[in-house]
Computed example of a mutant assay.
Amino acid sequence: MDDETENLVVLVLLGIFSVTGSIGNALVIYIYSRKRDITTSSLFILTLAGTDLFTCLIIIPYNIVVLYLNYTLYYELPCKLYMFLITCNVPFSAFVMVAIAFDRYFCICHPFLHAITIPRAKIIVMIMGVFACILGIMTSLTHGIFSIIDPPSLNITVNDVINSTMSSYISQKNVNDTILGNSSVTPSLSTITTSINETVSSEADIPEGYGPGMCAPSTEIFNSTVTYIYQKIYAGFYLISFLIVLILYGLIYRSIHIRRALKAKRKRSSLFPASPNEYSAVDTQMTVLNNGHEIDGKDADGQKKFRKKSLGLKEKVFYANIRTAAMLFIVTIVFLIAFLPSWLMAHDLVPFSKILFYMYFIYNVANPIIYAFMNTSFRDDLQAVFKRICNSK
């Protein structure tokens, strides 16, 4: 597939993501914001939906324009704004995933601790947002507009000047690498100009798709050492977030497994006691369970009668937390899978493909679909919304 066809496919895909993601996330915000009982999980879901909606309405269309212009923006502000948007949005989503994992861990493993309350969750979201914005600002300051004036004393073209000093630094995915924290650093524009005036004496191959006015990595504000350290830290946030989420959901699974094992053990001991003396007077008055039913005396033939067991409030809350944790775990897995190919490409671990790279935006579209499949309450509310829309027509 040639570059022109590949770019067209990417632009079409991003356009589809923008439209479908905007509609889906707007519905999520509408439904969850109307709920009377706002929980911490609902707050984090609203945060994710708001981030995804902003991405689909603003960042993806901006990305379409930048890709169509081949990163040739000519002005510093659009360049820095673009880098700010795409690099504060991604880590913020990762931070929210970590916060969700902590919230589910405390709800299931330590339900009486109440570590994350609604006010605390709002503060956590604000802190994560500020920190993500700081990362976006740092990234925007490491980029600028590439612009070199052709020295009048040299009878060469601008492209000749660019290629003589940039061929060893620039690749097609410079800007893409920065999004996910690649550690490659390009020289500052002043260094390039000095090198041109001192060393350019012959022509070489012109770097494909690169020229004056392009938004590209730069060390004009921060030197190469600072930029290198920052990019390493930025890239490390993904690995750290992944490990934290993996550990927390592992602890959640362990807690659920232990609880189910203890419940099964109590059930077996109640059905097959070793001797009648093992039960105290209080124990004999407790309800005996059998496969989710309660024993309710005996019938005329001496056989045990069973009636449907009704779950207590604590059990209902526990199982509701498990269902929510399962749904949000799937959201996290989709996030990790969507970004993994781009992260690997940015670190040159797999061959670069522009189409596959920009597929990470599918994550911003997938969440409403996950809620619709795994949350019956959301599905019912969604059907009610569609019915109201149809009836209004």
Rank of each mutant, 00 (worst) to 15 (best):
P273H: 07
D150R: 00
F357L: 04
L180T: 07
S184A: 05
N174T: 10
F17K: 01
V317K: 11
E198S: 15
I64V: 15
M286E: 09
Y30V: 13
M166Q: 00
Y75G: 12
P207Y: 06
A101L: 08
Y71E: 04
I38A: 08
R36G: 14
K304E: 00
A115F: 03
V19G: 06
P212Q: 02
L246Q: 07
L69W: 07
T87G: 03
P341F: 05
A264R: 12
M359V: 10
T332N: 09
I221D: 13
H110M: 09
N89A: 11
T225Q: 13
I355L: 04
D150L: 03
I64G: 10
Q172R: 11
Y68L: 02
A94H: 04
V130D: 03
N367T: 10
Y363K: 03
D283C: 12
P217L: 11
F318Y: 10
N321T: 13
H257Y: 14
N277A: 14
F378P: 07
E6T: 14
S18Q: 02
V331G: 04
L336Q: 15
I123P: 01
S270R: 09
Y82P: 01
L27A: 15
E203A: 11
G211M: 03
D52F: 02
Y363V: 03
Y228T: 14
N155H: 04
K232T: 12
Y363L: 03
G213T: 15
V90T: 01
R388N: 13
G209L: 08
I124H: 00
L14P: 15
P276C: 12
L8D: 01
V90S: 01
T178V: 05
D2C: 10
E278Q: 11
F131M: 15
V125S: 09
I100S: 08
I355Q: 05
F306K: 01
S190K: 13
N159L: 02
L113G: 02
L251Y: 15
T193R: 01
S41H: 03
S93P: 04
S255D: 11
V158N: 10
N63M: 13
L73F: 12
P152S: 13
L53R: 06
V125R: 12
A101F: 07
H114M: 04
F357Y: 07
F357H: 00
G15D: 11
I118P: 00
F339M: 01
G15Y: 10
V200D: 07
S224Y: 07
E76P: 00
F242D: 12
F237A: 09
L271N: 01
F357I: 03
F378E: 04
Y82I: 00
V185T: 02
I100M: 08
L27K: 13
I64A: 12
D283M: 10
G250M: 15
F352E: 05
Y105W: 06
N223W: 09
V65D: 11
V350R: 03
L113K: 09
V200I: 13
M1N: 06
I38V: 11
S269W: 03
G50K: 08
F92D: 01
K309W: 08
T193L: 04
I31G: 08
R259V: 12
L48C: 05
L81G: 06
E294M: 03
V19L: 12
N174P: 06
M128H: 06
Y238R: 10
M97E: 08
G213A: 15
F95C: 07
T5Y: 00
S164H: 08
A372D: 02
Y32W: 04
T39I: 00
D380S: 06
D3K: 00
T219E: 03
I330H: 06
V317C: 10
T191P: 00
